[in-house]
Design a protein around this nucleic acid. Structure first.
Lengths: 332, 332
DNA sequence: TTGAAAGCGCTAACAG
DNA sequence: CTGTTAGCGCTTTCAA
């Protein structure tokens, strides 16, 4: 059953021409007689010839027409939309995306980065779960361009594409303050993530600005899955002096919060970071943005670096906007 | 800045040993003196040596430690969970997943398959948007194992992993019939998809079985995006003798239906194919299943083929189960 | 325990 | 318009 896959040499022998001629035909180069080309093409089709990309890339100076993407979990809509945006931006220039998940684990991320570099990807897009980027920095020096998405590394100065975290949170808090809320809670992701820290920081600033010095009592961090988020929300709502409004800092946490709140009557107002498919149906106010755009911008930045642009690192900040819906619209 | 990336040869020269010795050390082979190994490792680390996977795979008989996945859209949760399941199953045996989107376009799918084959992937996982699988069949014959996911091809006999589409729809319809519904609508995806045809077919069987011969009048096909799905649902609900219940055949269509129905009082009962994150919060009855498992089973099947298993094609059917929630629980 | 030589499939460089 | 040669980085085979 398994006929052997023919090489260019096999096609050359069968058509009675040199390998170089077959190579020319296969690559659509000029200076090949029309009938020669036709014959070669026929033989190639008959044999089921497919040029070996591995061999091609191996020659060309060991760079694969591939870009590595490292995120937390391909199945998280935030990440999968980044992947889609990047994939589409890379399609035109002929690059494929090798998408991997670190499961938010730093060790696994290092393994993935090493694997991708060994595969000689043309560049790396990384939503890092690691605090230490010395390994990545080294690879960058050794010729693999890297763009950090969503989370800006504190220890290396490299290209970044991040959201306007502070602006988003500030807008959300001001919105709630306008509606008369003062006891506002925040449920956030792992505290080691830069995005989380920025969001909490902006939250504190906004709260202190209106004279709520003890804002920290309503902050709950390290909710990384749905159940933890639900628990944190219940904890807040059931506590002493429960908050009248809650801000959740990503789509997973918002989902967890909704589960916790669905069959309660004492529902606090809610504003979630990240828009999601059914936010309109459920009437949830969100800080919306375009993850696809983040993937696209990151890919474009990376393409520039791959093309040889070695200017100083650039830092892109993607806009966010508040979409007001029912979950926060009744004044207190 | 861009130091050149060292080759194995460079490491060999710097450590004063042969290339073969470096190769042995790098690959952890036995029969290397401890001090030789230590020296080589030091030099390799200093230079930032990374074995070139392209060169390795190129040699080994031109097979990349990579599996190609072709789906409609990485950002659709159904597909991204398949990708996650596959990625996890492939991780252990050391394979990476090259995930691509065909945008439900047959031409693009052919391009993708050709690209992946040229990249010498070890195998292919395909949710096909194409009716004609002669190209894929050819590649299979030429040595690239292929497993079809979700949609079974009609024109080639190959390994498949599909859902129990008929069983799921039958269960859903029977559930609605028990609640007293007789005018039941169905809103479905592109009619050329085998999954869609199976689901409509099962729907017709169940309806005829209880004496509803004109069931087709409440069937709307070819709703491939949210807006089309919303329109189809409104069309049904606003029509003459509107259905009292609607079955939607995938997560996108269910979302579209919810948008169409959210601010109406004459909401029909609803059952959706595919579970989704907020189905519990919204109280939507669904035909649930595990997309991750489909990816995993497909990957395992592929691994067996890659390992040389050339037995007759196997056809895996993944179970589905009805999860009853509020959207269908009030008797008519 | 170590090394030398050959070759994987393809294309750039250089003839004819 | 067509062909020859050499070599990309690595590992297999064989020898020392």
């Amino acid at each position: 059953m398994s006929t052997e896959r023919p090489t260019l040499r096999a096609v050359a022998e069968r058509s009675g021409v040199s390998m170089k001629t077959v190579s020319r035909v296969v690559n659509g180069e000029r200076y090949v007689a029309a009938d020669t080309a036709a014959r070669v093409l026929t033989v190639a089709a008959e044999l089921g010839f497919r040029p070996n990309t591995l061999a091609r890339e191996f020659r060309a100076g060991a760079r694969s027409a591939t870009v590595g993407l490292v995120t937390g979990d391909v199945a998280n809509p935030f990440y999968s939309r980044i992947a889609r945006g990047a994939e589409r931006a890379l399609r035109e220039p002929g690059l494929s995306l090798l998408s991997t998940s670190n499961d938010e684990d730093a060790d696994r991320e290092r393994t993935l980065v090493a694997q991708l570099v060994e595969r000689r990807v043309s560049g790396l897009l990384v939503v890092s779960a690691d605090d230490d980027h010395s390994l990545i920095a080294r690879e960058r020096t050794l010729g693999t361009p890297v763009v950090f998405l969503d989370r800006a590394p504190a220890d290396v100065d490299a290209d970044t594409v991040v959201l306007d975290n502070a602006g988003g949170i500030r807008t959300a808090v001001e919105h709630l303050l306008e509606r008369g809320h003062r006891r506002i809670g925040l449920v956030g992701d792992l505290s080691r993530l830069s995005t989380h820290r920025e969001r909490v920081h902006a939250f504190g600033d906004a709260m202190r600005a209106v004279g709520v010095p003890d804002w920290q009592r309503w902050v709950r961090s390290d909710s990384h899955d749905l159940d933890e988020a639900s628990r944190a929300v219940r904890d807040l709502v059931d506590g002493q002096e429960a908050p009248t409004a809650i801000v959740t800092t990503n789509n997973r946490i918002t989902t967890g919060a909704l589960r916790a709140l669905v069959d309660r009557t004492d529902r606090p107002a809610l504003v979630g970071f990240d828009d999601f498919d059914l936010a309109d149906v459920l009437g949830i106010t969100v800080i919306a943005h375009e993850p696809d755009a983040m993937g696209r911008v990151g890919a474009e930045e990376l393409l520039a670096r791959i093309a040889g642009d070695d200017g100083p690192p650039r830092h892109h900040v993607q806009p966010v906007r508040l979409v007001v819906r029912a979950s926060s619209s009744t004044a207190r």
